[in-house]
Write a protein that binds this DNA or RNA. Structure first.
Length: 672
DNA sequence: GGTAACTGGGTTTTT
DNA sequence: CCCAGTTACC
């Protein structure tokens, strides 16, 4: 059934040119709010219309939500909704995982390999650091998190350790030798234990694509490869795209260099610039008409938009009218929090749903006071970015136990599980891992020996865990396996954590979700790569009629839009971040972040700057200083803003003159 | 002596 | 939540 050319509805000339473009390489440069998603989905729909099979189209994005969204919309536009599932797509990492799982054997991986998230990777680093007695000296030693960052940056930018340390981690340079040794051991250890980290996903995918036998088969699978947010790709991802489309045939990329905000993980907008010049037959289409925001918001955005960017775009508005964005100068941070909530509730009174309003922050903790204020005034909210559900300790415990079913050699998972027992800490844990984590994949080890090696008070509990794990492993069905692991973990979680019952409830929900899957390892990888990102939801999945304010980091807000956007904490040191103030490149990235933030707003944009900030985050004695204004709020920018002073805080209740005697409260009747 | 449990202070951004 | 420093067990 053909919905005649539904894909060309509501497209302007530039968008249409991109949609109907043939198979030569295509670069779409799309300013914020210019209908980038609409164009990309219409292009996919058009490809389907041309008769290209859905499974021969691959769409690569940076968030799974973006991928799912676009694939579903493209299929609907093409008039074949059921093709949505056949279209291939997802994040680079998720797609890599699919291929690696399919080709595990030729890649030298065991079928049940574990996927390590960055926190797991840091744990492995810690383990190795202890073993190598790295950092026993007095010199400042990089923490394991930093080491993972360094390692990841080397892999993703394909730079040598020396270079990365010199440019980005100069304080680690004295340790270059030990770090090199540590990284070597890290790679070997992961291999030996059947573990794969996020970077390995990309490395292995690239390796497979470049392999003489595998490569051609994988490349031949697709006629078209489309990449979203191309300004955020790193060197390794570029190599993957190049391997997939060596001559650029069937390649479409979309990006905006002014929205490049992932330099910290090795991304570089130059790859977007280079692409246009590297293929002589490439076409560049620029989308400059902004359909999202009212003109006064665009006036601000066009000034904020970095001018030194390689691609010059000026957003032209399609929505006249509306008011200038407001800059509210607040007394201090608590007053700012009150003002944000006041304005959210005012708009709500006027009929704007809470979920049409978002508070965007530079760092997750910048919304602390606002969250407090929302809670106190019983306004429901949901927070994206910052700490994730899956990063909560008990969820990691659960995932580790599940991982052990398929990969009994995963020492990291063992270590987590063992340390949940009373009496087993880091030292005993490490000793026991050697006994229970077999080098071979059989999973066999000497129980009695392991239990005997444990401290006396942990033996009963440990015996029960080992037994439970064994019986879980013997279960065939996913439901039974998950149930067994849940049963095994329940007492451990209850005794280990302060809010045991709440955590058990979390795991219960997780178990039901896992039980519905037929492929447990794939599900585990999925939640690791794309964690349920909301942390405000202690009460389970939202009902459709539920309404809540969105709080999000600017990074997590990319690609999204709201009727009203609130931007608090515009103070030097917060936004822009103090971590970035030192370098021009850092500051430029902050500016792009500010651009991304302002362009999320459709109708209303409110900026907040507290005039006083605590010396430290948790300052005592009310010690405040005059906050340095954000360097974003200077010069031309100010002329686009409606600058308001916060109405002074409500006066405290003052005692009226009393003509009566002292007031007494008589409670006697309560005791009778 | 060596571990485990407890306490207090600190935290950029994410696949 | 994570880490370092401290106290309290075996």
């Amino acid at each position: 059934m053909y919905d005649d050319a539904a894909w060309d509805a509501n497209l302007d000339e530039a968008q249409l040119a991109a949609v109907v473009h043939g198979d030569d390489p295509l670069v779409i440069v799309a300013g914020a709010g210019t209908g980038k998603t609409h164009t990309l989905t219409a292009r996919v729909a058009r490809l389907l219309d041309r008769g290209i099979a859905p499974e021969r189209i691959l769409l690569l994005t940076f968030t799974r939500r973006a991928a799912d969204d676009m694939l579903a919309r493209a299929a609907t536009l093409s008039g074949h909704r059921e093709w949505g599932r056949r279209l291939r797509g997802g994040t680079f990492h998720a797609v890599a995982h699919q291929f690696i799982s399919a080709y595990a054997e030729p890649l030298g991986l065991q079928p049940g390999f574990s996927l390590l998230d960055p926190a797991d990777a840091a744990d492995v680093m810690d383990l190795l650091r202890d073993e190598q007695e790295f950092g026993t000296g007095e010199v400042r030693v990089p923490r394991s998190r930093t080491l993972v960052d360094v390692y990841s940056r080397c892999v993703n930018t394909r730079q040598r350790l020396g270079e990365v340390l010199a440019t980005d981690f100069p304080w680690c340079e004295p340790h270059v030798e030990s770090i090199a040794g540590l990284f070597k051991a890290y790679v070997a250890r992961k291999r030996a234990k059947g573990q794969v980290d996020f970077d390995d996903l990309l490395l292995l995918w690239r390796a497979a694509l470049c392999d003489d036998r595998l490569g051609p088969r994988m490349i031949e699978m697709f006629d078209h490869v489309l990449v979203d947010e191309y300004q955020d790709v790193n060197a390794l991802q570029v190599e993957i795209v190049q391997a997939l489309r060596p001559d650029g045939h069937g390649l479409t990329v979309v990006g905006d260099d002014a929205q490049a905000i992932y330099a910290f993980r090795g991304a570089n907008a130059c790859y977007l610039h280079d692409l246009a010049s590297s293929f002589s037959h490439a076409t560049v289409v620029a989308l400059e008409r902004n359909f999202r925001s009212l003109q006064p918001i665009l006036n601000l955005a066009n000034i904020v938009r970095p001018a030194e960017a390689g691609i010059h775009l000026v957003l032209s508005g399609q929505r006249p009218g509306g008011r200038r964005p407001v800059l509210l100068r607040c007394h201090d941070a608590p007053a700012e929090a009150r003002a944000v909530v006041d304005r959210i509730l005012d708009a709500h009174e006027e009929g704007m749903a809470l979920r049409e309003q978002a508070v965007l922050v530079r760092a997750a903790h910048h919304s602390d006071l606002i969250e407090l204020e929302l809670t106190a005034r019983r306004v429901p909210y949901r927070k994206y970015g910052g700490l994730r559900f899956v990063e909560a300790a008990h969820v990691k415990d659960f995932a580790a136990a599940l991982r052990l079913l398929d990969n009994p050699a995963d020492e990291l998972a063992w270590f987590r599980l063992l340390r949940m027992h009373e009496g087993i800490g880091p030292a005993h844990g490490r000793a026991l891992v050697g006994l229970v984590a077999p080098l071979s994949g059989t999973g066999a080890f000497d129980w009695a020996e392991a239990v005997a090696a444990a401290p006396a008070r942990s033996r009963v509990e440990l015996g029960r865990t080992l037994e439970g794990l064994e019986s879980a492993r013997n279960q065939a069905g996913v439901v039974e396996r998950v149930e067994s692991v849940f049963a095994l973990l329940r007492p451990l979680v209850l005794s280990r954590y302060s809010e045991g019952p709440a955590r058990v409830e979390d795991l219960d929900r997780l178990s039901s979700a896992a039980s519905a899957m037929d492929d447990l390892p794939a599900w585990l990888a999925e939640i690791t790569l794309d964690p349920p990102s909301s942390t405000g939801d202690r009460a389970g999945p939202p009902h459709l009629d539920e309404d809540f304010v969105i709080i999000s980091t600017v990074h997590s807000a990319k690609g999204l839009e709201w009727a009203s956007v609130h931007l608090p904490h515009l103070v030097d040191g917060a936004f822009p971040s103090d971590m970035a103030l030192g370098s021009a490149a850092g500051l430029a990235e902050e500016r792009r972040l500010f651009y991304v933030a302002t362009t999320r707003a459709r109708d209303r944009l409110t900026l907040y700057t507290p005039l006083r900030m605590p010396y430290h985050r948790r300052a005592r004695n009310d010690r405040h200083c005059i906050a340095p204004a954000s360097r974003f709020l200077e010069g031309e920018v100010l002329s686009t803003l409606d600058i308001q002073e916060q109405t002074p805080p409500r006066p405290r209740v003052e005692a009226a003159v009393s003509t009566h005697g002292p007031i007494t409260v008589d409670l006697d009747h309560l005791w009778r």
